[in-house]
């Protein structure tokens, strides 16, 4: 599942601008399936952790309202080209997504 999160990290001065795209349904648990009329069970990312060279830079908790196939942007000061970015997500079913990239 290495391709589950696409990451682009670009250096602007000494600040790394990171954009990550994750593949996830982000089901709220409030939506009805139009065909069956049944409520679609909740399935959404609850936690996203981003690390730079192994150090946690961002720890975010999400509710079900973040859009489908979430995009996440953040900035890290003091970054250098070649720094390793790793992002890991965990959803309410305990499933995980992983992605990594290097700052360019």
């Amino acid at each position: 599942m290495a391709e589950a999160i696409k990451i682009r990290a670009t250096l602007q001065g000494d600040v790394a601008d990171v954009k990550a795209l994750m593949n996830h349904v982000m089901e709220t648990g409030l939506r009805q399936d139009p065909a069956s009329g049944k409520v679609v069970p909740a399935h959404f990312i609850q936690q996203v952790i981003a690390t730079f060279n192994g150090k946690t830079v961002l720890d975010t908790r999400w509710g079900p309202s973040v859009s489908k196939n979430p995009i996440l942007g953040f900035r890290v000061k003091g970054a250098r080209a070649g720094d390793k970015v790793v992002i890991k997500t965990t959803d309410n079913k305990g499933e995980t997504l992983n992605g990594e990239a290097t700052v360019a």
Binding site: K19, G63, R75, K77
Partner: peptide
């Protein structure tokens, strides 16, 4: 006014700037 008002809670550390970009329903 969303059914569940809290969307996201983000903690920054080790040089991360207090900035976040994402899309919400």
């Amino acid at each position: 006014k969303n059914p569940r008002p809290l969307i996201a809670d983000c903690e920054f550390s080790n040089g991360a700037e207090p900035y976040i970009f994402f899309r919400t329903k």
